[in-house]
């Protein structure tokens, strides 16, 4: 079981470690566009659409990675007073009641959404026409990654690996909103 958990856990870790690098790239693209616009009066035709699509790809693909690192804000005021056994039950119930219904709908509806866009060859409209379906496909993949990480997190709880006891998570540099 631990091997399975480790293997599945690695998927979002790898995705996260690669996708997280995009932020600095779209920062530079915007900077490049700003320089071209103000210094050379020659704005790019593509920067607006490309950075919007990159930003969307970036954050949506990182959802599972953030879950793996317990970065999604939660309120543990009450559950932290529970015993490990009770807290495990409540945590698993949270996944069953809220997480899986949402990610399942997100995955299946995104898939229909992306498939329709692909079948219609949907593009952005205007003098520059970019295809829209790749981002919709990415959203579907991202929903799948979320669902997968949710399963992994439940498996960890079942196997007795409690995130609230995981020092590597607690000691990480803090991140928040």
């Amino acid at each position: 079981m631990n091997t399975v958990i480790r293997a599945l856990d690695a998927i979002n870790e790898v995705v996260g470690r690669i996708v997280a690098c995009l932020s600095i790239i779209f920062a530079f693209i915007i900077l490049y566009d700003v320089i071209m616009r103000y210094a050379f009066n020659a704005p790019t035709r593509w920067a607006f659409d490309v950075t919007t699509q990159m930003y969307a790809f970036y954050f949506v693909m990182l959802g599972g990675y953030a879950l793996k690192h317990q970065s999604h804000v939660r309120v543990d005021l009450i559950t932290e007073t529970f015993s490990d056994g009770l807290r495990r039950m409540v945590e698993i119930a949270g996944y069953v009641i809220f997480y899986f219904p949402f990610t399942y709908v997100f995955l299946t509806r995104s898939w229909e959404f992306a498939a329709r866009s692909y079948a219609q060859g949907e593009t952005t409209y205007g003098a520059v026409q970019l295809p829209v379906y790749p981002l919709k496909m990415a959203m579907t993949v991202a929903a799948g990654l979320l669902l997968l990480q949710g399963i992994v997190e439940v498996l960890k709880l079942v196997a007795g690996q409690y995130y609230w006891k995981d020092t590597s998570l607690v000691e990480e540099p803090h991140h928040g909103s």
Partner: peptide, 13 residues
């Protein structure tokens, strides 16, 4: 957009 570009402007969508 095409018309504007032929007239020398740039379309922003």
């Amino acid at each position: 957009g095409k018309l504007l570009e032929q007239l020398g402007g740039n379309q922003v969508s």
